[in-house]
């Protein structure tokens, strides 16, 4: 039984002429225990996909089955409970509540679950120890570095022991040392049998993944299984190519990515989709 099943999932933003297609009939199945890296240029719909998988957003069309249960018909409260109990979401910008200290932030999901104060502080403290920032538990979020904040955010995502961890560019705002720390934490979670999906721009980080999914303009264009410890072959290609590209491409890193990404039959599709976008800008 697949943990996540996406079937022809589309997401549209805006109305009428201003409509943008963020996801275009995406089909994706993720089994329990997978460690999936999602790659692709900015604006290709990675975050939208993460939000839909993490139940923060709803698809415009298509079916999403989580743990073999359809989630389109869930009421807001039911999906809130599902988010609380089965999904841990990690954001690029950490998203800790600024007015609460680290410990309270981590204990927040437990509060919503109805755990009593003593227990939730105990659990939160233990979780902070696991992510290695227990000595900072009474600090306010603005007193911590990015890496520490992300560790706290991971602790918060893990506190309810979720089956699924969804991380939207968890290392996007971090230096390489903190990135390594965060990825090792995710790898550790994966080792314990949890399913992890994360978005990254860094091909090096595909070493941690068991599967790499490439996206482009709202579609999944490539999907490959890899071995933990190795950079995914396609990602490697991307990395090598971007290293050897000319100066102009180095300056515009995004366009480099776009060029080097493997293309299925997406060339014509891409063009036709860009036209309404341009029209919107003019108006």
């Amino acid at each position: 039984m697949a943990l996540i099943e996406l079937q022809d999932v589309s997401k549209l933003y805006g109305f009428g002429d201003a409509t943008t297609l963020a996801l275009d009939e995406v089909n994706l199945t993720i089994e329990k225990g997978e460690f999936v890296a999602v790659m692709g240029p900015s604006g290709c719909g990675k975050s939208t996909l993460m939000n839909i998988i993490g139940l923060l957003d709803r698809p415009s069309h298509g079916k999403y089955r989580l743990q073999a249960k359809s989630v389109e018909t869930l009421r807001p409260n039911q999906s809130a409970k599902l988010r609380r109990d089965t999904i841990g979401f990690i954001f690029q910008s950490y998203n800790l509540v600024p007015r609460l200290n680290v410990l309270d932030n981590v204990a927040l999901p437990l509060m919503y679950k109805g755990v009593n104060v003593t227990n939730r502080i105990k659990q939160a403290s233990a979780m902070l120890e696991r992510v290695g920032i227990q000595e900072r538990e009474y600090f306010m979020p603005n007193q911590l570095s990015g890496g520490q904040l992300q560790c706290a955010a991971i602790a918060r995502a893990l506190i309810n022991n979720p089956k699924l961890i969804v991380a939207d560019e968890p290392t996007g705002n971090l230096d390489s040392e903190s990135s390594r720390l965060v990825m090792e934490l995710l790898a550790d979670i994966h080792k314990n049998g949890n399913t992890v999906i994360f978005v990254t721009h860094n091909p090096e980080l595909t070493r941690y993944a068991t599967r790499v999914v490439y996206m482009h303009d709202g579609s999944i264009i490539h999907d490959e299984k890899t071995v933990i410890g190795r950079v995914a072959s396609t990602a490697k290609k991307v990395a090598e190519k971007s290293l050897t590209s000319d100066e102009e491409h180095l300056l515009a890193g995004v366009s480099t990515m776009m060029k080097t990404f493997p293309t299925k039959d997406s060339e014509s599709k891409t063009k036709s989709r860009k036209k309404p976008l341009k029209g919107k800008k003019k108006s």
Binding site: A80, R83, F89, L108, Y112
Partner: peptide, 11 residues
């Protein structure tokens, strides 16, 4: 938004 994302219900 944060609170909703980590599972706070409407109530």
């Amino acid at each position: 938004g944060i609170r909703r994302a980590i599972g706070a219900t409407n109530k």
